[in-house]
Design a protein around this nucleic acid. Sequence first.
DNA 1: GAGTGGTCTAGACCACTGA
DNA 2: CAGTGGTCTAGACCACTCG
Lengths: 244, 244
Amino acid sequence: MSAVPDAPLFQPLYRQIAELITRSLDGGEWKPGEAIPSELELAARFKVSQGTVRKAIDELAAAHLLVRRQGKGTFVATHSEERTQFRFLRLAPDDGSAERLSRKFLDCRRMRPSAEVAQALDIPGSQAVLQVRRLLYFRGAPVVLDDLWLPLALFKGLTGQRLSEYEGPLYGLFEAEFGVRMIRAEEQIRAVAADADAAALLEVGPGAPLLSVDRVSFTYGDRPVELRRGLYDTRSHHYRNRLS
Amino acid sequence: MSAVPDAPLFQPLYRQIAELITRSLDGGEWKPGEAIPSELELAARFKVSQGTVRKAIDELAAAHLLVRRQGKGTFVATHSEERTQFRFLRLAPDDGSAERLSRKFLDCRRMRPSAEVAQALDIPGSQAVLQVRRLLYFRGAPVVLDDLWLPLALFKGLTGQRLSEYEGPLYGLFEAEFGVRMIRAEEQIRAVAADADAAALLEVGPGAPLLSVDRVSFTYGDRPVELRRGLYDTRSHHYRNRLS
DNA sequence: GAGTGGTCTAGACCACTGA
DNA sequence: CAGTGGTCTAGACCACTCG
């Protein structure tokens, strides 16, 4: 039994290079949206061939840590762009229209994590977290009620004031102001009956069926940095998923 | 306006090779589970370098059409193996245990497709379809109620008799006996209230919240070949999804 | 035109599998 | 051991972007 069950001892060179580049990203050597050095520069820096650097970057681009743009360079991925906004929000209107969404901040409070939250975020129960509640509107109607839990240590200075001013995706705010970048996430989806609170906020009948989406988001090195519980009204929207 | 909006005119060589290999797969030159020719053989056959064949196979392996096995060869992917059974069934027990599942065939009837079914399968309303209903059990308890619609033309000879005898994943049966291989699928997920039928079959209360999963499955060339509507009891299971 | 990523080749060697 | 896929290199040329 090992904590990392499938970690081979000897990694190919391109994976070691990918690891070095990831560490530079984690360390903030290049900021989201910026270009990283060219393949030839990186090859010189790491004393390997351009082909090996290419393969390393291929991996990181496949994992959406980097974005390649032919003729321009390779860039650090960011959540602040239109193109990537719906990578983590998988809700779409049934009629296929491209609705603009708006966000309404409801609440932000500092608290001790519940056992469940502490376990999901892999922090001791003594370490404080922020709980944030907000609503998402499609075409003016509330569709998503989100509760977020964030380790306070990583989001020092995050206030309700700041959240109520901000417009745009939360993950954009997190990466720009706190240097916390979401790389991947795991979701658990269930059908639940709306409780009184959720029913009132989402403007559905009490007990109405809602989609419950529990998400844990991870940053570099698979460190969990956000727990999120969303309740989706799926009367005229659906969660879309592609299996491949 | 074009039917295929993002099809570039000039494809790189490795993509043309990938297309040729895909056509051979579609045509049945190699059967699921079998090995395809080695990279060097394919390179000779297509008059390109091994590296170009490698890149073509890389693409097809990433799309799960092929499976590479170092030292052994490259194999046609199949749905009849343990490893791939849960690629399309994303339901997992909350407690993380590895439950064996069993299937119970309920019904199979030939019918005219509804407008909705005909549109999803991209067939004329005059072309008959098969409707199949079945239950999935985890640890002896019913958890999934599935309705499937299949174009009759592709599944000639499929009978309730055959379905009730068969044990194993349906997609394994489809590829082995009808040469219809599922490559990818798109799902739309909603929360709904159980109707009387579903409540009785899934042993939940009437009106209980259920996960509704609509799936369209595609074979080679993005041709839709199955519509499926599943109702999941998520009281002790969840739909798992990885965002990346 | 210079600089970037993208493709293609040829060859050497490594790692794994199975007879 | 031979045969397979996996890695790494070096070099040539293509396609795209931008000044």
